[in-house]
Design a protein around this nucleic acid. Structure first.
Lengths: 343, 343
DNA sequence: TTGTAGGCGTTATCAA
DNA sequence: TTGATAACGCCTACAA
């Protein structure tokens, strides 16, 4: 079929093992035979068979990517392409390939992970999410299989290598930004409150209010999913408050939601930022394409991915690496959805 | 290390080959031993090793995904997540996994493909693009390696299995839609004119003009890349035309570009659709999130992906399948960026 | 119906 | 510095 190490060996008049050593660039092979073997390889158009190599080595140079619950939804999230870019870059630098776990629901994905792991298809795994009570996480820990998480583990963060933003600080900074331009009635519009990110950003929000001596009103806190329509109901409810209680600014924990919010506001005939300011999170590609362009907390999604695959490869190659937490910095990109409050 | 077929064999008091046959559910194995073996498997927590199986079978159950030139840019394209979803679904139905070719430039990707293919990492490949003079395409054809293309091959479409929209028809329909609501000066804002899609949609546009007896003005045709800022210059140039020559409608071949166009127009103080109508292509997620929501030609991106992986698997499993062209239907989603022309 | 043995293409150990 | 040879875990004639 394909040209193998044996064919090369014959052509070069050496043993297969010698060819193997040439491939590995083993220093104890004479330059002369190296050259000879390499010539033969070129002539025959030899390429090593990864599968055979994997079997012999017990290592595949492949990283598995695990998406949360339903991949479908996750793929839609503008977070995904960018984090994938980062993962890709980190993997590519070390000659690793990326493989996706396929599946439409949690059960599917769980089985996919088990197959990947036990089937020896991948050397390690990146979890692209963090959630409470995760079977996959427990499974990987039990088997002591190398993995890295993007986001903050719900528990035992010190025994799980993970890369994450300081989301408390990010929530704090965003809120302080609004306070700094004069806002006092600030509402928090967050995603699924089972996600650690949401909880943390909310915490930062509260801290900033406290520090500024502003009251925290639970009714100023709404949780919606990250999906598109999410925002609508939440916003309407807030905007129906009497004028002197209505928030003058919104902190929205996801750009996609912000888009929804923007549309809802426009339907309610409210102008951003004149009537109400918005600060958003993630700073994905289209944050600057909306009208008005969104002030958003850039969380360096690319770097999140890049660090994740780099760290994972480190773990795979040195199984005794201690667990790390990598904190990726964030910074606010001020655009045109925020403005000094009108008194 | 891990539990293998041999361990199971011992535990069940049979030969390894018997275990192997049980896994394959070979009918010539007695029910009794099947049960016995399966029990042993469960007890030991056996999972077949994919790598070993791949080596023995010469088949990996993995599909390689090849992105155009720079993956980075492609990942950003909102086309990508949806097509990936489709690919994922098609692959998952047949228990195939997806692997990405990593690389940042054409050279990188080419090498990645060669490694994947010669390295026996994948059973087949999906090309997520179609372009002129493609090394990767030639390479795959030369080696007679199973692949499927999304988009229309630049040449020899009858000897390449591909899944695509009828883009000429789509361009035609979109243009006719505008003509149908009274527009006569319609400009074509297209992406990279080396891409087959662009060329075809342009062709459809011309045909529709012709059919309606409207003149085709080359200056009404602008080509920009699919990138965000793309639109700006092109649009300004058009809008600087004297009022009675200025187009009243734009046909923009990509939603992302449309977003850019929308912003540019808003900077020029032109209102959509009152001052100018826009019909867009692809109908990606955020088409309805823009302001105004875009009238867009839905090209069924999901199905494009789904068909691609399904077809590929068919080819992989029956090497003698004849080449197909799968045409995925499109339809216009009318939203609020198009309006009857003001006379 | 089941077992034996060789092979898939590498790598790694041990001799030479 | 190189060559035999035995793994790696599974599949599949061929034999029994």
């Amino acid at each position: 079929m394909s040209v193998t190490i044996k064919d090369v060996a014959k052509a070069a008049n050496v043993a297969p093992s010698t060819v193997s050593r040439v491939i590995a660039n083993n220093p104890r092979i004479s330059e002369r035979t190296k050259v000879k073997v390499r010539e033969a390889m070129d002539q025959l158009g030899y390429h090593p068979n990864f599968i055979a190599r994997s079997l012999a080595n017990q290592s595949t140079q492949v990283i598995g990517l695990v998406t949360p619950g339903s991949s479908d939804v996750f793929f839609q999230n503008p977070f995904f392409p960018t984090v994938l870019r980062g993962l890709n870059e980190g993997a590519h630098e070390h000659q690793y390939a990326l493989q996706l776990v396929t599946g439409k629901n949690e059960e599917d994905i769980y089985n996919g992970v088990v197959q990947m792991v036990q089937g020896g298809r991948v050397d390690g795994v990146v979890l692209l999410y963090s959630k409470v009570e995760d079977r996959i996480l427990s499974y990987l820990q039990e088997r002591n299989f190398p993995f890295v998480m993007i986001g903050k583990p719900y528990k035992m963060p010190e025994s799980i290598t993970h890369v994450d933003n300081d989301n408390i600080q990010a929530g704090f900074d965003a809120t302080e930004f609004l306070i700094g331009i004069g806002h006092e009635r600030i509402a928090f519009v967050g995603g699924d409150n089972k996600l650690v990110v949401t909880v943390e950003r909310l915490e930062g929000y509260k801290e900033a209010l406290k520090k500024a001596g502003l009251p925290y009103h639970p009714r100023y806190t709404v949780h919606e999913t990250f999906l598109l329509e999410g925002g609508k109901d939440a916003i309407c409810a807030l905007m129906e408050l009497p004028e002197n209680e209505r928030p003058t600014a919104l902190l929205v924990t996801d750009d996609l939601m912000s888009l929804g919010v923007l549309n809802t506001l426009s339907e309610l005939d409210m102008t951003v930022p004149e009537d109400i300011s918005i600060i958003s999170f993630n700073n994905v590609l289209f944050s600057e394409m909306s009208r008005p362009p969104l002030t958003s907390v850039d969380i360096n999604i690319f770097q999140l991915g890049y660090e994740a695959s780099s760290q994972l490869i480190k773990r795979v190659e040195h199984k005794d690496e201690p667990h790390h937490r990598i904190t990726v910095p964030h910074h606010i990109i001020a655009r045109f959805s925020t403005e000094y409050v009108k008194k």
